[in-house]
Design a protein around this nucleic acid. Sequence first.
DNA 1: CGGCAATCCTACAACGTTGTAGACTCGCGG
DNA 2: CCGCGAGTCTACAACGTTGTAGGATTGCCG
Lengths: 339, 339
Amino acid sequence: MAATLKDVALAAGVSIKTVSNVINDYQHIRADTKQRVMEAIDELGYSPNLSARSLRSGRTGVIGLAVPELSLSYFAELADAVITAAERRGLKVLIEQTGGGDRARELEILRSPRLQMTDGLLFSPLGMSNEDAHYLDVNFPLVLLGERIFGGPTDHVTMSNVESARAATAHLISKGRRRIAVVGGHRGEVIGSAGLRLRGYQQALEEAGIPFDPALVGHTTFWHRANGATSMRELLESGVEFDAMFGMNDTLALGAMRVLQEAGRRIPDDVAVIGFDDLDEGRYSLPTLSTIDPGRVEIADTAVRVLQERISRRDGDTPPREFEARYQVIERESSALPG
Amino acid sequence: MAATLKDVALAAGVSIKTVSNVINDYQHIRADTKQRVMEAIDELGYSPNLSARSLRSGRTGVIGLAVPELSLSYFAELADAVITAAERRGLKVLIEQTGGGDRARELEILRSPRLQMTDGLLFSPLGMSNEDAHYLDVNFPLVLLGERIFGGPTDHVTMSNVESARAATAHLISKGRRRIAVVGGHRGEVIGSAGLRLRGYQQALEEAGIPFDPALVGHTTFWHRANGATSMRELLESGVEFDAMFGMNDTLALGAMRVLQEAGRRIPDDVAVIGFDDLDEGRYSLPTLSTIDPGRVEIADTAVRVLQERISRRDGDTPPREFEARYQVIERESSALPG
DNA sequence: CGGCAATCCTACAACGTTGTAGACTCGCGG
DNA sequence: CCGCGAGTCTACAACGTTGTAGGATTGCCG
């Protein structure tokens, strides 16, 4: 079986505590004993039992990341960034999938005892709404991601949804467009990605003195490619005129672009398009997709940092903080027109 | 902080072992004591400390999954399937990223302190090659995924690379195509996804009596969208003629399609295209992408099942087994021609 | 009614680690 | 020469759980 401190201690002729001290870089150890211990460790191929260590210390060195589905590119890229950020800080990441917006499963995650293998949780809900905020008041370190809940009882790392959506819309306006369709609206939503981004869209219109036309907003339940396609088909059938489109995320935009092209609309000539998320995919679509980089890497870094602070300080009393990542408009072919 | 067995035992007026027995569904417990214990558990909000449990039992209930990067859609979808399969079996998944084909990092994962808190590892290398097979001979349960190493010392779950690539090529041939370009070749590779799929391609040509023309094979180091684009650009510049293209994966195929369209080639009319992987993305590209479904879900299910068997049986002696998932040709618009 | 098995429960000892308290050496100043 | 602090090491007791062995209590059979 695997060697333990005891075995190493025996081999090196010291107490187990001394071995433990060597491993934990305790200051006052004679150079020669230290070396003897190191040799014994190498020889036996010892490595510490992390279950025992975390039983003793109360820490596992693992954080949980709960996202809807890794098949959704945005969450896959987020998970990538989180794992990378965590690794830099010596943490491992255990990933849970809550399903695409399944509120019940999301609540279950918050209750589940299984999370005990982790020191804290990065939680990105999709089905919960602001009324569920009190469920976030749990007794373990929790950092909230995403735009479903604001003003909750925990730290929160989010995008600048309103501002960046306004910038995206303003970008289309700066290209001379005035009839800007939207794909991905959620009826009646005020916060949540859809609500916030629609607000940004409206703000940009207002600033440009363009009246808001509800007929230009396509609604979808989910934000998959298929929904973007369907929504665009509906817009086209409705006969409403438009010379630009803002996709609430890249996946929607790509699905919608596909339908536009089938319908014979040229992009960007007939319809200028911008998405949201800066997925790798948009870099190689035809045409390449203009988009908003929502600062995914910054979000992941901040979230992991803040969670780690909460874990190590154990300060349940510091009031919850809110962080907004910096965004960036990325112009590609789908909106490249003489400004 | 959190309640322990001791607290519950005190509250219920029984010994801690009895509480433990209730939790573990031990047979011989009087109904009324059981109920008293349950009530105490509910009241105190007790949930078992998993570190202690796994120190005692030697199991953590967590498996590791090491993949190159989650940003690569294939691995994101694989991770999704693995997490889903693991959950069905009561296991959690800790994900480790090795970087896109970084052999040194892959080897390090195998050496790393028992991969921290996991009972076993699903390992999908990209940089290691068959000569590294002996590194897989580790003292923890390990199941190998992917096509980099065959005949190694561990269980191995893989795609039917040769057969399915042959089927993909045969599909193009059945559409009347005879000059079939390939994107994604690795020079000199015999096994590995590129080597195997190229072999399948050649077999299909041979069966159809079409001579193999090396000029039709585009080489790339990586399999990202950009590589597909670059490779296709090179093929076009080389002036070689072709009426079909087999992308060694969907990402390559999509990148290459993009370049073909820019160059004015119609798909599928001028060039019929098929990819490999059945990524969600290909369902919404323009045109939609024909592809091979390599049986990703089956691979994940099998891998998790086999790993769990190795973990629970602890039978280091059963000889390593090899599993091949069933594939399927999926015809979409990019190769839809009168057969 | 004695005895024996089945049932129900408990005390104790691990699992491998680290914090605490303290023992034993030095070297040095008083 | 003693005392003292710094340096080096050790013994012991936890962390929360479960396996083992065995002590009570019951039911049932002869």
